[in-house]
Amino acid sequence: MKSNITKFEMIYRILEDNSFDRSKLVPILQVVQKEYGYLPEEILDFIASSLDISYSKIYGVATFFTYFTLQPKGKHIIKICTGTACHVKKSTDIVNIIKNKLEIKNEEFSSKDNLFTIETVACLGTCGLAPVLIIDDNIQGKMTSDKAVNLVDAILKQERSK
């Protein structure tokens, strides 16, 4: 079995890089989020004690910014815009259809195999292309339910052929 030592050393390095400065909490969390894709609770706890701030404060910061997540994110991230323009063009339908397709329950964000994570965002600033969806950093405009399902299918096919 492989040890977690590299993981631990990395967190330690992140903290050292930021000179254990509590005012750099957000940058520290950003790096952790980047490395892991999410903020594991045991790491938050370690950061809290190392920086000598209360756990609830870190937890507050981690739950305040939508950038941070406390659950592991899937391999492929689908962001769907629910800003006003996209909402009017029925982006919520697209959310529901994809969730249905991937069997993701209402309150969940990631599929069971952790292949997909669905996020809704407030506005992507491309209202002219509404409704907008981003799969793995590819912006897809003028989305329809069928198109969205096709995109997901394409990725699923790719994953299965691996």
């Binding site: 701030i53 209360s54 609830s56 404060k57 937890y59 507050g60 739950t63 305040f64």
Partner: peptide, 8 residues
Amino acid sequence: GVLDFMNR
């Protein structure tokens, strides 16, 4: 600092 706000 036991209590703090969570979520937004």
